[in-house]
Simulated assay, not measured.
Amino acid sequence: MTAFRGPRVWGWRWRRNPLRRRSDALEAWVVLTVWVVTVVGGVLTGLAATHSVEQGLARERAQWRPVVALLTEDAPKATTATASGAGRVWADVRWTGTDGRSHTGRARVAAGSSTGTAVTVWTDGAGSLVTRPASRSEAGVRAAMAGVLVGMSVAAVPCMGGRIVRERLERRRMAEWDAAWARFGPMWGRKTG
């Protein structure tokens, strides 16, 4: 059974009222706490996530370097499947790292390129192949999206917890009403006088 909901009166749980129960005041504090934790927690964790992602992407931009690599095999010709990928295919390449050692790996190159063609690849500090790092504007968008997602995810936790607490309070309140009705309801049927 759900409670009757009349017109909303803001702040009624905070006002002195002979009909206000302890559970009403407790629910008011639960709602206030949930909103504060939701807003503050969501915003702070969202900002922290945004800052962390921005730092990580800035570190990648600073440490990852473009290197000229040479194809060690002829790249496959473009097919209809690769045509949608702007004519780029996977092929084996070889490059010399900053440590002077020769490295090999697979990179996306123009379809149909011949052996020995120079291509630009990106490497990290260890000389391993990586993707091209995000530009400042791309990093800003990624960081903002991560911050919003993390903030909303964190904010959902106290919202769900508050909802569960409020449902339990509502059930308890309805049980109290049922008990009171069971106690006083039969008295209404008696005739007086």
Rank of each mutant, 00 (worst) to 15 (best):
M1D: 01
M1N: 05
A3C: 03
A3E: 13
R5W: 04
G6E: 09
G6Y: 00
G6A: 07
R8T: 06
V9M: 07
W10F: 10
R15M: 11
R16P: 13
R16D: 10
N17D: 14
N17F: 01
R20K: 09
R22S: 09
R22L: 12
S23P: 12
S23E: 10
D24Q: 02
D24C: 06
D24V: 04
A25E: 00
A25Q: 09
A25W: 08
A25C: 10
E27G: 15
E27A: 15
A28T: 05
A28G: 15
A28H: 07
V30W: 04
W35T: 08
V37Q: 05
V37S: 01
T38A: 11
V40E: 04
G41N: 04
G41F: 08
G42Q: 04
V43R: 03
G46P: 08
A48C: 07
S52N: 14
S52V: 06
G56M: 06
L57M: 08
L57Y: 02
E60A: 13
A62R: 00
W64R: 14
V68I: 12
V68W: 01
L70Q: 04
L70T: 04
L70F: 12
L71D: 01
D74C: 01
A75T: 03
A75Q: 03
P76I: 01
P76Y: 02
P76N: 09
K77D: 10
K77T: 07
T79Q: 06
T80Y: 04
A81I: 15
T82V: 09
A83H: 12
G85T: 05
G85C: 09
A86H: 05
R88F: 10
W90M: 12
A91Q: 02
A91C: 08
V93A: 04
T96H: 03
T98Y: 00
T98G: 00
D99C: 04
G100E: 05
S102D: 10
S102E: 08
S102K: 13
T104H: 12
T104R: 11
T104V: 11
G105E: 02
R106C: 02
A107K: 02
A107G: 03
V109D: 00
G112W: 00
T115Q: 12
G116C: 12
G116E: 08
T120G: 03
D124V: 09
D124R: 14
D124T: 09
D124C: 13
G125N: 08
G127V: 01
L129I: 02
L129N: 07
V130L: 10
P133F: 03
S135K: 13
S135P: 01
R136M: 05
R136Y: 02
R136K: 14
G140F: 10
G140E: 02
R142H: 11
M145S: 14
G147Y: 01
V148P: 00
G151C: 06
S153W: 05
A155L: 03
P158A: 03
C159P: 02
G161F: 11
R163G: 14
R166Y: 05
E167M: 12
R168A: 11
R168K: 11
R168Y: 06
R168P: 07
E170G: 13
E170V: 11
R173D: 13
R173Y: 11
M174G: 00
A175Y: 01
A179N: 05
A179Q: 10
A180E: 12
W181M: 13
W181T: 00
R183V: 03
F184M: 09
P186Q: 07
P186A: 11
M187S: 11
R190D: 14
G193R: 12
